[in-house]
Amino acid sequence: MPTAEIASQEPVSTNGKVDPSVVMDCNIENLYYGSFKAVRDTRIPVQKNAITAFIGPSGCGKSTVLRCMNRMNDLVRGFRLEGHVQFRGQDIYGPKIDPVAVRRFIGMVFQQPNPFATSVYNNVAFGLRLNNFKGNKAAKVEEALKSADLWDEVKDKLNESGLSLSGGQQQRLCIARAIATEPEVLLLDEPCSALDPVATRSIEELMKQLKARFAIAIVTHNLQQAQRVSDKTGFLYVDTSEGSRTGYLVEFGDSNQIFHDPKQKETQQYIKGEFS
């Protein structure tokens, strides 16, 4: 059954010596919601200019791990983390760290497109206002919308409500909103699960373009998607041996290796089950 040493096999940092390309080093020993242990023994590095995908069956805690990485879990009552999440060598769960500040450097795009009930322009400019950006807002908004491949579709309706766009456009708007402030890391929590295949493809293309500028971590339940876009993949699974459902990392590595030559039995079964 699940073994604890898996996490340490991975080619991550050893003894604090961090691979310079690793922007975030997420090392969860135990993660609790109240008395419920949701995740254990999960160590995932997120690299610059790469897409790191989290896959696994539902309930394995992959979204929980992602939400750990910009402290969204702080909003959940009873949340407690043992371990550390380092961003550029600094523990974002350190006692003096402001979670609000963390989130400004580590942006997030959610499962459901969630534009604000305001104009397209204001949606994208939101982050700029948060950060008291003094420069040319219009230029930044245009740049972000162009980066999100949305500019051509919305340039004539910047003043229309963000909610009037289609689902795929809304999600790209949310991505534009997240990248307008140029965060270091972009966390995508099943960004395509509410979208149709065409919109999904366009988001995937977008992710490939964006990795030139950001470190990207994505949670997906769609294995083909993970295979198509990701450079690194972590497979999480559920451990039910202690009577509850605790997620843990089974295997982490290059996507090619995970999908074509998985080392662990659980990974092999999961990948085969999906592809056979």
Partner: peptide, 13 residues
């Protein structure tokens, strides 16, 4: 922390 012309910054005082 990164420098350059960074937009993201921690909440001001």
């Amino acid at each position: 922390m990164p420098t350059e012309t960074q937009i993201s910054k921690p909440p001001s005082r």
